[in-house]
């Protein structure tokens, strides 16, 4: 997996709460059996009209924001369906960092498996970024666990394990397979005890 340590870029402001994964990638794009190529379908129903033309009033279609790799958004981003396609679509579109006051659990977890850093910041700090970051660079430093913008610096919390996974681009399955003996031991212990 690709590693992530640091980024300095401007943000796309998606000023909405509760953005669910059905919006991030609508169901018609879950029919593919591959893991790449979802970028063009990101927020499909919000980006395109029925005839396939672009809807100009949606932020992702706003030329000013094109090419930006940080998505700034609001509470409970990624709620709903467990579809990892939502994260693949963000990744394929070029997003590497998400900043919000909170994320839905399954979505949050899925991010780390795909080299995306979801940064959880205090609500007032997210508000600050919405107000001040329009044309300002935002620095996201995973090692220091800091977001810096307009001379303001905000710390964020992240679990050690998630941090390591992203910083080193770890193969989680390979790591777990090294614990084979613990798994075998657990399985034999369970077999010998009650069936519960």
């Amino acid at each position: 997996m690709k590693s992530f340590k640091f980024i300095c870029d401007k943000a796309i402001p998606l000023d909405m709460i509760n953005v669910d994964t059905d919006q991030i990638i609508p169901k018609q794009f879950l029919k593919m059996v591959k893991k790449e190529g979802y970028g063009e379908f990101l927020f499909y129903n919000w980006r395109y009209q029925n005839d396939g033309t672009l809807l100009t009033d949606f932020v992702l279609n706003d030329k000013r924001y094109s090419g930006r790799r940080i998505l700034l958004t609001r509470d409970n981003f990624g709620s709903g369906s467990s579809r990892e396609h939502a994260v693949w679509a963000l990744r394929d579109f070029g997003i590497t960092v998400l900043i919000a006051p909170s994320f839905a659990d399954i979505f949050y977890n899925n991010c780390f498996k795909n080299g995306i850093l979801p940064v959880q910041l205090e609500r007032q700090n997210v508000e600050f970024l919405f107000k001040n970051s329009e044309n300002e660079d935002i620095v996201v430093d995973l090692d220091k666990q800091k977001v810096v913008c307009c001379d303001h610096s905000f710390s964020f919390l992240i679990n050690e394990f998630h941090k390591r996974m992203l910083m080193q681009g770890l193969d989680e399955i390979g790591l777990t397979l090294e614990l084979e003996s613990a798994i075998v031991e657990y399985e034999s212990k369970r077999r010998n005890h009650s069936s519960a």
């Binding site: 893991k35 467990s82 579809r83 990892e84 396609h85 994260v87 659990d105 399954i106 977890n109 899925n110 498996k113 795909n114 679990n159 394990f161 989680e172 399955i173 777990t176 397979l177 798994i183």
Partner: peptide
């Protein structure tokens, strides 16, 4: 609980999941 596809792969390979206790 529901999981993403990377975790499906992880469970297929290891029958386990890394989790923080809710």
């Amino acid at each position: 609980l529901g999981i993403g596809t990377s975790d499906v792969e992880h469970v297929l390979a290891t029958q386990c999941l890394w989790m923080y206790k809710p």
